[in-house]
């Protein structure tokens, strides 16, 4: 079972934060196929948020195929859910290293790179991509 937390400073809506945290937990293997998500009542009882917000997040996750609702039982991580395959990891890492070399060649330092990463990440999160 995982516990959600809210970060108001993110500027990301509550329901998206829940969606992100479930995706993240599945990617890291904290949540595995068949695991149950906290019930709506448990979530609102721990975070003091509107029940519709939780339901909206679960609906979106369900729509993405990451979880499935079983009537009367709760919401469970789908059997097919899992992180990206290791092969695509390696590929992404190689292209990231290439990008980093380019950035350092262009005169950026580590702090510049982190700031650039955070900004781009923030923008994508606002668009709901990440």
């Amino acid at each position: 079972m995982i516990q959600f937390r809210l970060d108001r400073r993110l500027g990301v809506s509550t329901y998206l934060q829940i969606v992100h945290q479930v995706r993240h937990a599945v990617r890291l293997g904290i949540l595995r196929p068949g695991d149950q998500l906290p019930t709506v009542k448990e979530v609102v009882g721990s975070l003091a948020i509107n029940p519709n917000t939780v339901q909206k997040a679960y609906r979106e996750l369900e729509h993405d195929g990451l979880v499935e609702g079983r009537p009367g039982l709760g919401t469970f991580v789908a059997p097919t859910a899992g992180g990206p395959p290791p092969s695509s990891h390696a590929l992404l890492r190689r292209s990231l290293e290439r990008w980093l070399r380019g950035a350092f060649d262009a005169g950026l330092d580590a702090e510049d790179v982190r700031a650039l990463f955070e900004t781009s990440m923030h923008d994508l999160q606002k668009e709901g991509v990440a």
């Binding site: 009542k41 609102v44 009882g45 003091a48 948020i49 509107n50 029940p51």
Partner: peptide, 14 residues
């Protein structure tokens, strides 16, 4: 305040 709102939201689910 937080405890009150938690109780209220649980009540709203029920």
């Amino acid at each position: 305040r937080r405890e009150f709102l938690k109780a209220l939201m649980e009540g709203a689910v029920d």
